[in-house]
Design a protein around this nucleic acid. Structure first.
Lengths: 205, 205, 205, 205
DNA sequence: CATGAATGAGTATTCATTCAT
DNA sequence: AATGAATGAATACTCATTCAT
């Protein structure tokens, strides 16, 4: 059994890589992609720069690592609760709640995704790493609309893919809006409800 | 009244600043904010770096200049056609067309705005420069929804400010979507029409 | 008498050192002295860098080891055939052949010797290690000229030490010449023959 | 007229490049190619590293510059005195004297050429830069032998190209020999005289 | 013997900015 | 206004060497 004192030193590579990715993410959030410095990451992890490069050889690989851990964290966030038993409208509500949580408690995550997405338009490798993330979300949201259309809780004439584009656009852009207050978030959600809910549907509640 | 001599000179200086801003914008589009180098800007304008610094003393000021010219260009784009005589639904259509033009013919503009917006969350000075740009757009779109509600071409129960958030979100996020094709743009616009148009309204056309 | 257990181990260690020296030599040949990296050596031998340092503690010692194995290989090359029964002229011929073999089949050896010799002028320790190598060769060649003078197969008025300097210079510099082709090598050997052979001597063949 | 005080600062690029090349040459001589550091060069020239890179952007270009200035210095050394009126044997004597001067008073030059030549075998670009240097010397020496053969001051049966190879080899290798004393140099020259002079020629002196 | 992890000192190169002319 | 030259501070990355296991 390793004593906890020495745990600071001689970490396993996997642990180190996780710590490095976390530090990198925090720094991107704080200073943006342009302000990301390997030295700062090393300092935050508490290791020498050479040690950083031992675990993650190049900055490009660091960015890939960052994108990968982001993926993992998002999956963890999104798939945590099974919702197949809920109606489309109910799942839409859950989405509002989940995204609000992301917005308020995981600002870093959203911010870094935005940062990487922006960069992805100029970096094909990054684009490829980020693609599944967006695609998964888009697919999941489209599935909600599909379900809602089938169970009549949402409007029968909606186009799931298109509706997903609108919803995701509204949700992701909200944080950059003029006044991203809780009140405005709720007003926006109301508007989305009016836009997609089936007016002739009677809720079971 | 300034003498014509100095007026010419002043204009030359302004021209330089405009050229510098344009070059900076093009470079931000090409290489991102992180890849923006004063030397590259000077080279593109065809002047010495020292000369660049004569006209725009610091990089921070350069970014401000960039944001300002952006503002000007957007205004030019948005306010060019008076639309007060159109119905809300028609103005919404015009917005779809205008944004598609921006999307396909002024990619640079949208991209640089996105880049600056992202950075604005960490740079209050930039945020302040960028704020009117978003606010103007938000206000203009909200006005459209207001008009549509009044003339019954759009749904009577919509919240103009919230609807504007949704629309702007959908439009600005579209370029980062999985497949930003014209077809998908049209499907998204259709969905937005279904979401906001007044179903009981009979178009005058 | 050492017990066979430790003898095996000792041999293994020596084997490692030999393998390390060989890898180092190959790398000096490929990338020059300036490109010699301990990590590359370790990789080529198939061991960890820490293991390399266990066997050869410092880079300086590695270079010494390299110089020593070079010595051994040269001896093997030069002393392999006894030639005491040959005339001086015949031994000179044998030298031409031997050096050509070195030139074509042991390029690495010659190249690394050159590399080390160059460095020796700045590193007295290395100079001392390399000195016997040159001296041995110089002595051996001088002996040939001495023999040739005695048996009248070579010119009677030559100065063995000086002639050895000329011969060794010509042979070692040839590889850096403009066109080190076989034809030029033969032309050079012809010239050396004309320079040192005794014109009034009648060959026994 | 610029005051000598300020002459330290704001040098013209050409002057700086010359100073940089000279410093680089001295450092290669002192520490070898492997020990050549841009920072050391800058320090010796008395400029900032960034300034060094302003004048000579990369280390590769620095090496090219080094090779070029070497060329220039050699030309200056070799072609300084016209010798067309001398006999081949006399020109050979002049060569002995010239090379001895190089050997004793321009050690740096010879050493750096050796260093670069060694490196040239792995760096084609450098090889190409160095080629004319060797070729010019080879051609000049061959011409001497040609002249000597024609004026009967040297042996009639010598092959100028081959003899040049031998001579150049002997001269260049001498500095690496066991005991590069003046006495040994003279003995070597004597041997070369015996090898190439025409024994039946009666000197005009 | 062997190795994964760690590091101090360094290595070429870059960048915004300044200054003398 | 314009520019060639200069620079402090940095920036990603490297290398021989050490150490705990």
């Amino acid at each position: 059994m390793p004593d906890p004192q020495s745990a600071t030193k001689r970490e396993t590579t996997d642990d180190r890589r996780i710590a490095i990715a976390a530090a990198a993410r925090a720094l991107v959030h704080e200073k943006g992609f342009e302000g990301l410095r390997t030295r700062d990451i090393a300092e935050r992890v508490g290791i020498n720069i050479a040690t950083l490069h031992y675990h993650v050889p190049t900055k490009a690989e660091l960015i890939s690592l960052l994108a990968e851990t982001l993926q993992a964290d998002f999956r963890q966030q999104v798939v945590k609760r099974p919702r197949s038993h809920l109606s489309g409208a109910e799942q839409l509500e859950a989405e509002f709640v989940d995204h609000y949580e992301l917005l308020t408690e995981h600002t870093e995550l959203l911010d870094v995704v935005a940062e990487l997405s922006q960069r992805a338009s100029r970096d094909p490798a990054l684009a490829q790493l980020l693609a599944p993330l967006r695609r998964n979300w888009q697919t999941a949201i489209a599935a909600i609309f599909e379900t809602g259309r089938a169970d009549a809780s949402l409007k029968p004439d909606l186009d799931p893919q298109a509706a997903a584009l609108v919803l995701i656009g509204a949700l992701t852009s909200f944080r950059l809006s003029d006044d991203p207050s809780a009140e405005n978030y709720n007003r926006m959600c109301d508007e989305i409800r009016r836009a997609f809910r089936n007016p002739s549907h009677v809720s079971g509640h």
